[in-house]
Amino acid sequence: MAALDAFVPRAGRRYSEHRNFDYGPDDRTNISMLSPYLRHRMITEQEVIARVLAQHRFGDAEKFIQEVCWRTYWKGWLEMRPSVWTGYQTDIATLPRSAGYDAACAGRTGIDCFDAWTVELKQTGYLHNHARMWFASLWIFTLGLPWQLGADFFFHHLLDGDPASNTLSWRWVAGLQTAGKTYLAQADNIFKFTNGRFDPTAFAHSAGPPSEGPVAALPIKAAPPLPTGAVGLLLTEEDLNPESLDLGGMHITTVAALPAVANRAAAVTRFTTAALREALLRNAALLPTPAVMLDTADCDSLIAWAQTHQLKVIVTAYAPVGPASDRLAILAPALALADIILVPIRRAWDSAAWPHASKGFFAFKDKIPGLIGV
């Protein structure tokens, strides 16, 4: 909330004019730095946009609002194409790690900007969006490394590592999101938008064609009906703002949280775990029973919690395609065998926006004014 308060006055024309500059980790005053909180929905897209529009005209803040809505678009795009996530996970598990991959991950490629961004990413858990694009282009086209391993490297280290935004942004650079269009980093662009910090020379000047055909979009499934009566609330790292969920006629009697997704950098795990605990404490203050961080994400610990509190229904904020969704897909059948129903609650924002992500972002962009009511 403090970060949001500090940024809102700068969300208008100033943001639009300066957002593409990467001045380095010691000067981020030209961007919001809200992405780690939006990624876990500690603050929501609607909340951020409403706060911005309270101080700026839509035309002045449109570029920032579009950037917030890119997250929503990516979520909807992947929700309609879950096979892209499944294939990406398979590739991560099977692709070989070469000496070139090891050098890239260690920041020992000899490309000064790339190596500096590698160090920055590991030390801070963040890279400017422009730097992420340059990094991915160099990874894929200059170093000749699989985009999937680069996306996984980012997801491992980014505090805002988002299954949809991260994976699909890497696919976009590789030329798989927009047919026939790759993103090739240019030396003059890097020099200009790093304010002269980097002046690279040794990188690829051409990009090969993508090797994947179009992926058909599936329709967004209807949201399940909301239960009524006493229920337990299960938090995942996908949505840590349960206070703003539409709970209808439900009465929350107890709260638990699944632990952070494993196999990420220690700093990412600490940040995500702290966010989970903070959400638990916020909501536990309203309940008569203690809130619980489950020791593991396995079925036994979740069933034990539910049975301790005599739960027949557990609700959780809808988890879009990604690791949390994969976890819940395993847990739900096991809970059902114990006569416990797991019900996802999907936000009205997602239900309204995701169906518009069937094509490219420019088609989605035209829907933004209607989504935010301007």
Results as ranks from 00 to 15, higher is better:
F198C: 09
N166A: 02
A179R: 13
F154E: 05
F198G: 04
D188H: 02
G144Q: 14
F191M: 07
A202I: 05
V173N: 08
K192I: 00
H156F: 05
G161E: 04
T178P: 01
D162H: 15
K192W: 01
F193W: 12
Q148W: 02
G196M: 04
V173Q: 09
A179H: 07
W172A: 14
T167S: 02
L176K: 14
F193P: 01
Q186G: 10
I190M: 13
T194A: 09
G196H: 06
A187H: 04
T167L: 15
Q148R: 15
N166W: 00
P200Q: 14
L184K: 04
H157N: 15
A202H: 15
R197G: 00
W172Q: 08
P200Y: 06
I140D: 06
T178V: 09
L149V: 02
I190V: 15
A174W: 06
G175D: 09
W147E: 11
L149M: 03
G150A: 12
H156Y: 07
N189E: 13
D188Y: 00
F193Q: 04
L176Y: 10
S165V: 12
N189F: 01
F154S: 07
H157F: 12
T201A: 15
D199Y: 09
D188Q: 01
A202C: 11
F191D: 05
T142S: 15
I140N: 07
W147S: 12
S165P: 00
L159R: 10
Q148L: 03
P200V: 04
A179D: 03
S165C: 08
F141M: 02
F198W: 15
Q148N: 05
L149P: 02
G175W: 08
G144S: 12
A202S: 14
N166V: 04
N189D: 14
R171E: 09
G175K: 13
P146R: 09
W147L: 10
W172R: 15
G144L: 13
T201G: 15
L159N: 12
A202E: 14
A164V: 03
F198Y: 15
T194H: 12
F155S: 14
P146C: 09
L158D: 08
R197C: 00
